[in-house]
Design a protein around this nucleic acid. Structure first.
Lengths: 211, 211, 211, 211
DNA sequence: AATGAATGAGGATTCATTCAT
DNA sequence: TATGAATGAATCCTCATTCAT
């Protein structure tokens, strides 16, 4: 008697359907949150049966976790390149970085992920971890070395680069990002983004200006 | 003709039971969120029948709204007094303010309210408004005039006091508050609070130092 | 020790409040039916407390019964007079009677009573009896003797006056009344009423014309 | 790409269960009316779970509507054949028709449908329509042409065949049908049915006898 | 006599999950 | 492997009735 079917008779098809389900789940979870989305809806949106859903994901919680990992890892755009220009002055670079950071955080996907994950943080602790790593940790990962480099070059005077980097990200969330998370009405045009970005970049450079 | 019956022959008892229900609701909503809490659980926790619940609150949403208003308005401690000391230098005052602000935001109640309201912002827009007003708006309301006064006295150099005040609150949320909202592990002792407070207070004063 | 309070310390007030309750109940039961009306609504509409309701009526069923008796007995307009004119020819009198009968049956009150009582006939058998007596029995009570009189005068040739009277009422319900009970759309102007009335009156006289 | 899954891999089983549910619903709705029947009771009576009920019917109203359509369309026996005998004289044919009509209308199903639909006419206008069509419209549909044919043959003298047909049906409901709808006690044996039928048939022929 | 807060069983409906086909 | 019908507990909410005040 042959052994039971190999784990993935045709891995491509298997992963394809998995992606198909995740795509359906994304639409719905981002639109209606975790509790507001039913597995039936996901099945319909993904064009598969409810039974198939459970062949690919053990439970609603597992599907949601997989989705969040997927979104966090795959969809977060890269910020790195902005910090690569070594000849640009600190203020200019940080203003550009703040602007990029704000734009990413104001993305509907990022806002909804933030809301859902904060809401379900107690229920899905590892998700909070993943999201944090991808959303903030990645930026920190490039910003901290950059700060250290500029400090070494005498352009900044930073003792605790990690704390400084976190302060910068806090400043960048001022007004726009913080309020949008609550769906509070806020005028959010180019001028506003520029205003907050400039305020964050110049503020940071003043805080950590060399004597 | 006699006047119609008083609306509440024994208002004390009525309000008492209302508080009793709100107390039960607080426990559960803060622990399990809006969707995660059922009216049956609230009834049991509050020691009343389900019918009584609906005599006092028209619906689950109404009960939740009342609870959030209650918590937002009643429980948020006052911060005002810190800013009253006119002879203290800016940095010292702002460090004290940051410390107080952090402590309030780290309160279990404040953290859970933040999570739940961010999660349900789309469903209860007016609650997001109320919470924001009470949690941040109130602080802004005293901080902005204080900044203007210190600017007038030449101790600060602030053009846009509101933006500056929002930046200060952003700085105060650095690391501790931001991470705790995701239930991320973070060492949160007196030393840490002091460190973040000092960083926020001194940063602000450097940003807005008179020339 | 004195005996307990007399049954009606001030009968006028007692009956007044009873009428007040019945008035409120009428509005609601006619508008929403038996199951669709709650005692709370009745209390509110009548301007009394729920407790008072139960002081005057033992139960919802008892209140409904009292209301139907009240409406059936009190509100059904009198038809008698039309049949008093002995010098008028049969056809003319019956056309007038049919017209009056149709108008009464098309009354919102009569239509709703019909619907509700037919609906609840199994639950409230005595109500069906009362309503029938008042709505149809009363008309029968004057129509049968009239038919007998006209037969005696040789103007009609009726063997079974009761059957004949019931046939006349059936004819009068043709089209308009029968359809309105189902809320079916039907043009119901003066011309239509006249048309059905004339058809019923002339038909009857043809059926029972003396040889 | 394979065609999508068939809508009902085993339609027989699907329709079978639907019928099973409708059968249970019929028992209960006819016995207790719309408001008096709960979905739990229907589920128990039909031997399925409450969830299954909602897999087959979107709501209680939808189930009720489906049931009424089902009963109206499927169960109403055909009357047509009686009118096919062209050599029979009018009176005899109409007496037979009246008898058949009375028997159908006195069916427990027809009586209960009448009661429930009259009761819920405002809530389910389209049901009233369907029931009326099936119960009365169908008879009208064959009776009107028959009357016109007999008029053409000189056996009747009818101007408005539709009005005449409706009058005939009204006459046939005299006494027995009208009273049974109110569950009023009425002796309803063969003799009674014959008596009313004969009265209706002969009456009609007298009304519309050719000069 | 009048109030209206309290009750708790019962209403319709949803949903994550299972399993026979 | 894929299906989708079946489940039944849990959801929010309503209501006739009672009873302490």
């Amino acid at each position: 008697m042959p052994p039971p079917a190999q784990p993935d008779p045709n891995a491509a098809a298997y992963l394809g359907k998995q992606q198909q389900i995740l795509a359906g789940a994304e639409t719905l979870f981002l639109a209606h949150g975790y509790e507001g989305t039913s597995m039936s809806q996901v099945a319909r949106q993904a064009g598969v049966s409810k039974g198939t859903l459970y062949n690919y994901f053990d439970s609603k919680a597992a599907l949601f976790s997989a989705l969040v990992e997927n979104l966090s890892v795959a969809k977060q755009p890269f910020i790195v390149s902005i910090l690569d220009n070594d000849s640009e002055d600190c203020t200019t670079t940080l203003i550009k970085l703040a602007e990029k950071f704000i734009r990413v955080m104001m993305t509907p996907t990022a806002l909804m992920l933030y809301r859902i994950i904060v809401a379900e943080a107690a229920k899905f602790p590892q998700l909070a971890d993943i999201f944090w790593q991808q959303a903030f940790g990645r930026t920190l990962g490039v910003l901290v070395p950059w700060i250290e480099k500029r400090t070494a070059r005498g352009e900044l005077n930073v003792q605790d680069a990690t704390l400084a980097a976190e302060q910068f990200m806090s400043l960048a969330q001022t007004h726009l990002v913080n309020r949008r998370r609550f769906e509070l009405p806020v005028t959010c045009d180019e001028a506003q983004i520029a205003r907050i970005s400039i305020a964050a970049g110049t503020a940071f450079c003043k805080i950590y200006a060399p004597d």
